[in-house]
Design a binder for these strands. Structure first.
Lengths: 347, 347
DNA sequence: AATTTATTGGCAATCGGTTTCCTGAATTAA
DNA sequence: TTAATTCAGGAAACCGATTGCCAATAAATT
């Protein structure tokens, strides 16, 4: 740190008024005349003054910064969500600090510590795969900071939330498969302690039930959300004497695994095997055939999460801190029908 | 802001020593005994003390935070680079603030202002498409903050830099095409004021020249880095009476466009048309056929950019501020050969 | 035993805005 | 004209950690 930074004291001296008045002028407070305001602003500009948010934050208690913790920053869903958050923060003149837990509970706890030290005003978090406890979330609240859970949330922990309509989206997806004439629809799920995956499973089950389909129990698998494992699982299922004629998977990566399995077994998609994945990853548009998927509106979800803070927590006076009621927003997903699930009308 | 935050004063009172000693103990400074250190740390833990970085930063001048500005956060290359930076920052106990310029010069300037206000110690930046001037970069230096340009850099502006070996990588890619027997290799480039794209073009040209191939000038196009435009351009080129037999494109998206063009014209890839893209996007693995591409080691690049600060700027005493010599690191890319460029040995 | 040298810990200033309280002047009301 | 009310702007405390300097005690040296 070398060169002297321009401060409000420098401006005050130049203009010939008190530092406190400079502060008031720069913040457009009413107790200072327009003439002075203009003078101060002009001089600030002239001297190329940069206000020091550390100083301001220290005094005011607000950092005008919010933090976000995601499992993986380079997963399309999360990076899009972050892009949305960043947009909203920028509009509201707030900074955004990003941390990734790398799907580790321990890292997640560390991230929260870091953000507490940084004194962020609010934390937006999507839980890691490993996370079961919520002790660390409690600490956020103990430090008087805002908290918004998004996507991978713990429903038992009271806080504002933004989630997808996972169950309903899955229901629609499976219903679409049924409408296309598929009757033996297998399910490849995720870690079942994560509600996002579990909700998708419920949606699947509901659609199956409504259509009164008879699905063998071994068509319904958990923990098959990666390409490789899904490839293996699908290959096995498809070689049964009574194989599934369609797959609904909780991730696009799993859908890709199924596609590869069908391919290597010489089965035609969608004629002999229908496939729908989840998340609408970029690659779903370029596989052969292209993969149907559920689009989660991740960018909007991110915007909604950030707005949860700006609309419901920043302004809101902390009146009834005891009987708080938390907002819960559901972002609608939409089914993107591509080739892998649309049978040519040759029934 | 409600509940009182625990400060070093609280700890001091409880332990019965001065606040300054608490600070020294917590920072492991030598002028405090181990006994006191243990006492202080135990008490800090007990009281659940969180240190306030705003206060510390204000006094010390360092924020232990670095800022990164990228054109788009949700582009695989950048989100991976950011993931790498985040990792390095985390290891070094620094925060990372992320901003996106959205390919706009104006936004880029605003991002820099924001980061200056936040008082970050260093800014890592990859320039937007629109950016031509570097006035705003100068301001970073005027504010005594570190600056590292990465990927999309302005070579005329003196600063630390981390880039890919774009030219060489392109050269290798085109050489590979030539080795596969392609003779009429077209080039789809990017905005030519960006050195990254221009370097790739130079590498292409060099390989062409060395092989003494005769390429019609209209095979070499700029500003064709998106899927749609590349699709159109390739369709046109492929319908010439003397069409290209291969394409080298500066992005994978353009490569995808070419693939689609070949497809719709009924041309077989790689037999009749060879294709190599750039960036190794996720989707290159799942197209039909799969796309060869250049992997940029984006995560490593991000780590290198962040380490540039930790290794060369943080420790380095600002001795010869005038005759500074800037580090320039080149990250090696590697060619990933997939189906789209590997002709079955049927020559 | 006396004096020099280390070691340990405290005092107080400091970073740069923010905010409360207060004063003197200007405006309005009586 | 005098008293009451506004209003613009200033003085100073404050946020919480850091750090240079100093004092007191302990240790080492002669």
């Amino acid at each position: 740190m070398k060169g002297k930074r321009i401060t409000i004291y420098d401006i005050a001296k130049e203009v010939g008024i008190a530092p406190s008045s400079v502060s008031k002028a720069l913040n457009n407070l009413p107790s200072v005349s327009n003439k002075i305001k203009a003078l101060v602003k002009a001089k600030a500009n002239e001297l190329n003054y940069k206000y020091n948010s550390n100083a301001a934050n220290l005094r005011s208690g607000f950092s005008r910064t919010i933090g976000v913790i995601v499992p993986k920053i380079n997963v399309a869903f999360f990076s899009n969500a972050i892009a949305g958050m960043e947009e909203v923060c920028f509009e509201n003149n707030h900074g955004l600090i990003i941390c990734q837990s790398d799907e580790s509970y321990e890292r997640e706890v560390q991230c929260i510590q870091t953000l507490i030290h940084q004194n962020v005003d609010c934390i937006l978090i999507s839980l890691s795969q490993e996370t079961r406890a919520t002790q660390h979330l409690l600490e956020i609240k103990n430090n008087q900071m805002g908290l918004v859970q998004f996507d991978r949330v713990d429903e038992s922990f009271a806080s504002h939330r933004v989630v997808n309509d996972n169950s309903h989206a899955a229901y629609e997806a499976v219903k679409h498969l049924i409408e296309q004439g598929y009757k033996k629809i297998a399910f490849l799920g995720g870690s079942d302690h994560l509600t996002v995956y579990n909700d998708r499973k419920q949606g699947y089950l509901q659609a199956i039930k409504e259509a009164d389909l008879n699905i063998p129990y071994n068509y319904i698998l958990d923990n098959e959300f990666k390409t490789e494992t899904a490839l293996k699982a699908a290959t096995e299922l498809l070689q049964y004497k009574d194989p599934p004629d369609a797959f609904f998977t909780v991730t696009d990566h799993a859908a890709l695994g199924v596609l590869k399995a069908a391919w290597s077994l010489g089965l035609r998609v969608p004629d002999e095997v229908g496939i729908i994945g989840f998340s609408n990853e970029t690659f779903t548009e370029v596989t052969f055939p292209t993969l149907s998927s559920v689009d989660q509106q991740s960018r909007n979800l991110g915007k909604a999460a950030a707005n949860m803070y700006f609309n419901h927590m920043l302004a809101a006076a902390p009146v009834n801190t005891v009987a708080q009621n938390f907002e819960m927003q559901v972002i609608e997903s939409s089914l993107i029908v591509r080739e892998s699930s649309e049978r040519v009308r040759a029934m």
